[in-house]
Amino acid sequence: MLEIVKLGHVYGTGPTAHQAIADINLEVAQGELVSLVGPSGCGKSTLLRCVAGLIQPTEGEVRLDGTPISGVPDNLAVVFQDYSRSLYPWLSVRDNVALPLSRKGAGRAEAREASERALGEVGLAGAGEKYPWQLSGGMQQRVSIARALAYTPSLLLLDEPFGALDAQTREDLEDLVLRLRTEHTMTILLITHDIDESVYVGDRVVVLGRNPGHIVADLPVVLEGPREQISTRATPEFVALRAQVAQLVREQINS
């Protein structure tokens, strides 16, 4: 379970200080998938960096399973938007996935096996020998997801993971995330600026406002049946919720 308590962060000091986020309170239950959506400048990436332990927040704290986060917790994985920079071009796809596993005490053979398994799960069985730059953007992001999966995190952060991909690929990967969460027990935080995506994938949609970044609304997503790209998006519940979120985001941009 992830708890964010009175979280705030200020960059710099003195007259140039900039309050990026303020007074953020959020609880995410074990196994839940929460979408964070908001306009640019709402402090999404600052929030992500605080949760990931990459920066120490100036106010409040983040607790993972009861322990306050200081430094990067070892049961957390991140899929970054910029896959071409997040994957290492000098390592093969398999080595990219296997690289972090040494921290979990995995031997060479074990790491290799785990990375092959994870690559299979994201539909890239047999691509292990290739280099990331030999793959399409969507496939590279699949490698990033495989790397996170192989790491078996209890908290997975997705930082605008599909923002740089074309629409068709994005839908495929949204469904991949939905499938993977049923097969693994992970708490997932999805940061996105795509309103459709936040509703389609999330159990809850949290809308962020800006100057400084704060929570505007926390809406449960109640949709009947398994999610499916065409039919789910056509249901009245989806359409209504999507409109509500869009309205809230629009208000934030205009305010």
Partner: peptide, 13 residues
């Protein structure tokens, strides 16, 4: 690249 290093830190290298 900063993202190279961030990624390495996230995965606890």
């Amino acid at each position: 690249d900063r993202l190279h290093l961030d990624t390495a830190r996230v995965f606890g290298l």
